[in-house]
Write a protein that binds this DNA or RNA. Sequence first.
DNA 1: TCTGGGGTCCTAGGACCC
DNA 2: TCTGGGGTCCTAGGACCC
Length: 384
Amino acid sequence: MSNIGCAPRRIAHLDMDAFYASVELLRYPELRGQAVVIGGRSVHQPVVEADGRRQFAKLRDYVGRGVVTTSTYEARALGVFSAMGMMKAARLAPDAILLPADFDSYRHYSRLFKAAVAELAPLIEDRGIDEIYIDLTDVPGETVTLAQRIKDAVRDATGLSCSIGVSPNKLLSKICSELDKPNGLTVLAMADIPARIWPLAARKINGIGPKASAKLAALGIESIGDLSQAEPALLQAHFGLAYAEWLHAAAHGRDERPVVTDSEPKSISRETTFERDLDAVRDRPRLSEIFTDLCVRLGADLRRKGYVSATIGIKLRYDDFRIATRDMTLPVATDDPVQIRRAAGECLRRAPLERKLRLLGVRAGALSRRDEASGEEPVQQMLL
DNA sequence: TCTGGGGTCCTAGGACCC
DNA sequence: TCTGGGGTCCTAGGACCC
């Protein structure tokens, strides 16, 4: 880009605060200040009483296999966090309010906040429904002023707060946006790394997950500072060359990845966890019905988004939580549910089915846009 | 009472080709 | 004789993220 060897970039990471829960609070303002949990499957909608007051489900009433999608800061104070099993959450916070997820509504607010940011700074990388990176390098204005203006625009457009971190790269900005949550605004320069980044747990680095951080801890490496001082040879011995080099660079706050403003999907999938584990033989009709339904929905997703897929795959999760995947490449890319079902069925025949199944998924990979995939390429291949 | 659904990227072996 | 060597595709698994 224009600034190689010149001034540092200004990269912002913007993260909406407790996004789903905050959207629900817009709709149910009487819940503000309470422990509220979003998640679970088949959760009851609030019931409106005769006097107009709303009656909400409580977490203690939940039965099933769902997990917490998100929770308000009051619920987090009770130990209830995203991805926690709902039954465990119910033990920790039985009186918390329980709401079903409403993804249409979250997507609506997601579009609103992203459009508001784009008015001020157009170079935006989508990182899901509630997060973006913004390249502010060429946007005029002082950094804090600019970041505050973005926060104000988001609040004006949605009524919601967000947290922003600004630094010379995505890695540091991602860490920064969390430092002062909620409603945070943190600007960080490379010179601040020893004081502000190194004391943090290594797990705070985006890309160091539960496995890697456990391995690091076993080596006596707990903080990012520990990691920055670790012997490269030690890291290499335990993580392999590529990951070891990345760990070292990350600990020193080095990251040259650009903000990517347009990207095409690589795969589209549908999966479902059953209410009870299913047996491939005894529950065959039910399994077959679910399987076909997943394929129909996947086909509809492909068609709606304008893609065809050349690689159809399945995913199984067994009752012991192990996962198996099988996939196969088709001679011609498709979005037809019948062809998807047939290919997925062949994949299923290659998978072990002795154990009971907990989850079944169908995936479409090797995507191409339907209007560009006319079927000429396979013909050429046949001629060769 | 464990543990959703939708993604990305990486690794690694074997097939196959030149 | 030990028997190239590189490139790409296909498949399976796994770590990680939101």
